[in-house]
Structures are given as C-alpha cells and as structure tokens.
Simulated scan of single mutants.
Amino acid sequence: MRLRFTRRHTSRRRSKAAGLMLAAVALGAAACSSSSSSSSTRPAASTAHQGYTIGFSNPQGTQPVLDTFQQALTEAAKRQGITVTSLNAALSVSNQVSDIQQFINEKVKAIVVFPLAGPPLVPVLTAARKAGIVVLGYNAVTSTSPITSAQQLYPFNADINQGLIHEGAKLAAQFVAKALGGKGNVLGVDIAAPVPSLHAFMHAEEADVTAASSGIHWLETVHDQTDDIAGAAGPVADALTKYHDNVQAVMAYFDGAAEGAAQALKAAGVHAVVVGQQGNADGIAAIRSGEMDATINELPYEQALIALKMVEDLVAGKSVPLVVHPPVQLVTKANLSSYVPWSTGLKEVADGTLTPPTTLSANPTVG
C-alpha cells in the first residue's frame, strides 16, 4: 500500500525513495512484551483521545534535522489537540535517561525517543512501558537483522527510522562511485558522540561505496568531536596530511561536517567529491555554491507527521508496522530546482497543507 500525505492547494511531487532498516538496537536481556509478528499493538486505553501530551527526547537540540522534526511534530500535534513537550539531551546519555524519567513523572501519554545508546536506556524505557506509556523509537533500529516480533523491539512499541542506513547510504555511495569513475580514496567523517544510528549509517556508507567498485578504497573514518563544522575541519586536515592529500572523496555524517571537510580540502588545495547528510539549509547553500556535491535530504517534517500518526494509532490501541522507513532524497546541483526547503515544509505542516497520513505502511512513499 502506498502511503500518501494529504495535501491541499499544491501538486508538487517529491522524489520517492524507501529505506529498508530491519534490525534492533542491542537492548540486551530486557524483559519483553508479546505481539503479532508483523505489527505492534497496545491495549486500547480509556484515555486514548486527543488532549494528551507527547514527550520528545531530542538527543541534540542544536542539530537542524532534529530541530525541524521537533517543530513539525509540535505544530502537527497542536492541530490534533495534542501537546508536545521536548527535552534536549545535548548528546549525553545520562541526560537522556533523566529526560525520559521526567516524562514518566509528568505522566505523558507517549514518548518519542531518538536513542543515544541501547542497553543504558532499557531500564527507564521499561519503566515507561510499565507505566502504560507508548514508546516510539526514532532511529532505534540500526542493524540489518530482521524484526519479526515486538519482543525484538522491546522496550519500544515501534520504530520510525530516518531512511539513512540502507537507502540514504546507498544513494550517497552510488553518487560517489559514479563521480569517481569507480576509482579513488574515500575518507569518512563520523560523530564522536555515542549515536548508534549515525555510526551505523557511516558503516553502511563505507560498505556500499567500496562494494560499488574494487577501485574504491575507504582510507579511514575520522571523528567530529564537537558535532559542527570546526569539529570536522581539524580531523580532515590531519587526514590529508597523513595521506599526502591523496583523498578523492569525503562522506560525512551530516552537512555541517561535510562543510568542515570542504574547508579543510580547500585550505590544502585538494579537489575532492564531498557528500553530506540531512539536506538542511546550509547544506543546500553549500551545494549551490559548489562547496559540497551532494547531500541526503531526510525530509524531517514529513517524518514528524508519520511519527505523529504512529503515536496516535498506538495510543488508540491500533496496530502499526513494527518499523517504518520514510523516504529520503539525494540532492545534487542537478536537481536543486526540485528541492523543497524545510521552511516550506514546516509552513505546510503549520497551516494544514501537509497533514499526517491516514494509513501507515512499513515502506512509505509520498506524492
């Protein structure tokens, strides 16, 4: 079944790309709940109606993609009579544990959590489930083992992924392999903080780009310690020195890191293909100026609408797919004219032009 968003007064088509991310974050020997093999369901509660509160555990509130998701979730929920309360963990696992406990204390109806870790979050998420709170993972599934039952996903009721580990990584790898003509050295830039989904994304990029051609070699993955442009520029500059400037491409975990890499390359007088991830305004501007060559656009405002629909259905006791994989897009200079700015997407969410889907599928596309 194709998943479509309801639109009014617009016929703009967006690119279609569905990611397959089928595996659980390693959550150890936590207590498990039972459900069907293809969907997650919770018993209908007497309070399953509009007027409740959703807590969003944001792992890093300064990241554009997460900020946009948060804004869209808040605006879309408001139109449904639902309140969203968000807390910023600032890349701290201990902060995230405290944030989730605060949501439990506030007796929210549901928690959307982008996990900074696996096992360390199990006790507090288990406590949330025992308190009758719906727990929706946002990028909780990071490996490739198939999810066939709710027990494998516990303590999450279900999970919405960003479409990066398979579809996004594949699109970026194909672009780089073609740009290099199947031959060259690639440097990766990952985040230093413990963000399982981003580490999995970078591993997927390495696997996909090296599998594309025997002539492509992954030199190493350096780490952005501060999750920003400057944090990437230094390690990339060091790597250029280490490899005597013999770097033909850089693949980064987010657009800011890609911009930092581009700055280091320019300073060293090295021309290389640079690919980022997110599709935020700065990344798009860098593609337009030629600083970057491509990015993976996550469409976070649409992900927020899917997440809201999943929460509403779970709170109402309805079945939802265990893992939902929203679409992502490869954005290059060649297709910039069809790129929809996130600010436009947020406006459409706020004014009701773009609304939550009426049905859910495991591999949604939008039209």
Results as ranks from 00 to 15, higher is better:
L121T: 08
Q101K: 11
L121W: 04
Q96S: 13
V135P: 00
P123E: 10
V113R: 02
P123I: 12
S94H: 10
N139H: 02
N105D: 14
V113E: 06
L136R: 00
V93G: 08
V135D: 00
Q96T: 12
G118V: 02
V135K: 00
K109D: 14
N139I: 00
I133R: 01
V113L: 04
F103Q: 06
D99V: 11
V124P: 03
V135A: 00
G118C: 09
F114C: 10
I100Q: 04
G137Y: 01
V122P: 02
Y138V: 08
V112I: 15
L121K: 04
V135Q: 00
S94Y: 05
I133G: 03
V141W: 05
P115N: 03
P120Y: 05
A110V: 05
G118R: 00
S92Q: 13
L125E: 07
A117D: 08
P123A: 14
I111L: 10
Y138F: 14
S92L: 11
N105T: 14
V124N: 04
A128I: 08
Y138I: 05
Q96D: 12
Q102H: 11
L116A: 08
I100T: 10
Q96M: 13
R129Y: 08
V124L: 08
G137C: 06
P115V: 05
I111D: 07
S143C: 11
E106G: 11
S94W: 03
S98T: 15
N95I: 07
I111C: 12
G132S: 04
S143Q: 10
T126E: 12
V93A: 09
V108T: 13
S94F: 04
D99W: 12
Q101M: 08
P119C: 13
A131I: 09
I133Y: 03
V93H: 04
R129E: 14
P123K: 10
V134C: 06
D99A: 15
V124K: 01
L136W: 00
P115M: 04
V113A: 12
A131S: 15
Q96V: 12
R129H: 13
V134D: 03
I133C: 02
G137H: 02
K109P: 09
A140R: 10
L116E: 05
P115C: 03
F103G: 08
I133P: 05
S143M: 03
I100Y: 04
A131M: 11
A117Q: 05
L121M: 09
A110D: 07
V124R: 01
P115F: 03
V122C: 10
T142W: 06
V122W: 03
A117I: 12
L136D: 01
L136Q: 01
V112W: 01
Q102W: 05
V124E: 00
T126I: 06
F114H: 10
I100P: 01
A128W: 01
G132Y: 01
T126A: 14
K130C: 08
N105F: 05
P119E: 14
I133N: 01
P115A: 07
V124Y: 07
D99H: 15
F114N: 09
I104G: 03
V141L: 07
L136G: 02
